[in-house]
Computed example of a mutant assay.
Amino acid sequence: MKALLYFCLFFSGTVVAQNTKVPSYYQVNKALCKKIQDLVTELALDREFPVGEDGMEQISLAVIRIPQKGRPQIAGFRYENFIYPASVYKMYVAAEVLRQVYEGKYSLTSPYIVRSPNDVDKNKEIPFDPRPLLQDGDTVTINYLLDLMITRSDNSAANCLIDLVQRKPINALMHRYHWEGSEVTRKFLNRKFEDAEYQTIRGTETSALHAADFMYLLETRQLVNPWVSMQMKALLARQLDKSKLASGFPKEVLFSHKTGWFSTWTHDVGIVEDGQTTYILSCFLPLPEEEARPKLKALAKRIHAFMKG
C-alpha cells in the first residue's frame, strides 16, 4: 500500500519519504488541468529552470476549487513536485505555535526573549513596515513574533518560534495530515549555528499540493481545530507583501496568503475569495523575484478568470 502513497529520495545519506498522492476527498478537474497546462505553456513555465548549485528545477502549481456543495476540485501543473519553499514554510511553523497556544503551553501574550544567533535579519523583508528589527535581548510576545513571521516574513521571528515549539512537534503535525516530505528541517540561519542534529540535515522542501491542502484545511476549519484555523487565516489576511500573486487579482478580492522569496525562488500560496468565489492558489516558481513577478501576476489574473467562469 505504501508504494502507492510515497516515493523515496536520498538526501545526505538519508532516505526521505515524500507523499505525492492527492487526498481522496478531492476530485481532479481534468478540464481545469488542461486550461492551466495551456497557460503554463503560454507563459514559458513548462520547462526546467537553473537554480544554481541545486541544478535544475520545475514549477509546482495547484488550484483547489471550493464549491458550496459537493467535493472540492483540484487541478494544476506538476503540483506533486517538491521544491525549496523559501519563507512559505513559516506557515507550517505558525500552525504548530497556534496548536500549542490552544493546548495551553503558553498564551499569545506570553513574553519571549530573543537570543542570538536567532536575530539574523539585517534588513526588513518589507521595507515600509515600521516595526524595528529584532535584536538579542528584546522581550516581545508570542503574538508579536507570529505576526512578524507571517506578515513581514521576518526570519529572526521564525527562528525564535522554531526554537519555542521545536521541530519534532511541527513535523508530527505535518505527518498527521500526511504531508511527508514537507517537514521543517532548518531554521533561517547558517548551518554552523544550527543544533548539532540539524547541521547536516537535508534542506526543507514542500510541494504545491501540500501547501494547497494546508490552505484548504485551514479555510474549512479542519486544520487542528476551528480556533487554530481561524487564527491562522487572520494572520494570513494581514500579509504585507502584495507584489506577487496578489498583484493580479481585482481589488475586491481578499487574498489570505504566505509569500516566499530567496535567490532563484519566488512563491505565493493562499485563499482567494471575493464574496462569490472561493478557491486556493498555490504557486512555486524557481525564478528570481524580478522575473517571477510578471509571471505570477499573469497567472493570478488568468486563473481567477477561469475560476469565475
Results as ranks from 00 to 15, higher is better:
D241K: 05
A62P: 01
L223T: 08
T204C: 01
L299V: 08
H210C: 05
I170S: 04
G13E: 06
V93A: 03
E57D: 11
L281K: 02
R202S: 10
V140T: 13
V269E: 01
F7L: 08
R293A: 13
N171Y: 09
N29S: 14
A44R: 14
Y89P: 00
Y89W: 04
V22M: 02
P111Q: 07
V165A: 02
I142P: 00
I162S: 01
V253I: 14
F188A: 02
V140P: 07
K34A: 15
Q135L: 14
E273W: 09
N123T: 15
A94S: 06
Q73L: 15
T151E: 07
L43P: 00
Q100Y: 06
T14H: 07
K105W: 12
Y177Q: 05
S60C: 11
E180T: 10
P72Q: 08
P250R: 06
D136Q: 14
H304V: 07
P169L: 06
V272I: 13
K168F: 08
F82C: 01
K122N: 12
R78T: 03
L108T: 07
R99S: 08
S229F: 06
A157K: 03
L134V: 11
R65E: 11
G260V: 10
F49I: 05
W179T: 00
P132G: 13
N225F: 11
L45V: 11
S24L: 13
K187I: 02
V101R: 00
A157S: 10
N171P: 03
I271Y: 02
I170V: 14
S256E: 08
K301Q: 13
E125R: 09
I201H: 06
P250D: 08
P226G: 10
P117T: 09
Y106G: 06
N123I: 15
Y279D: 04
K301E: 13
F49N: 01
G104F: 13
V15E: 14
K308P: 04
P294L: 14
Q276S: 12
I150S: 01
T109F: 05
H175K: 15
S110W: 08
R47K: 15
D163N: 09
N155T: 10
V228P: 00
L299C: 04
Q68P: 03
D274V: 11
L240Y: 10
R302D: 14
P23R: 09
I36M: 09
Y89N: 06
N29A: 11
Q73W: 12
D154L: 03
L148N: 01
E96A: 05
K122I: 13
M91P: 00
G275E: 09
Q100N: 06
L281C: 06
D274L: 11
W179C: 01
Q27W: 01
S156A: 15
N190Q: 14
I142G: 02
H257K: 09
W179F: 15
V97G: 01
Y198N: 06
Q100G: 03
N19D: 04
V120S: 07
G203L: 12
S12P: 00
L240F: 10
K187E: 05
E290A: 14
E103P: 02
M56V: 13
F193P: 00
D163P: 00
F193Q: 08
G270F: 05
G181A: 06
G76K: 00
E96H: 06
V165W: 01
M230L: 13
P286G: 04
Y216I: 02
F188E: 01
I201Y: 03
T139N: 08
D54A: 15
A298T: 14
N190R: 15
T259L: 06
E183K: 07
A237Q: 11
R302H: 14
Q18P: 00
D46W: 10
K30S: 10
M232E: 04
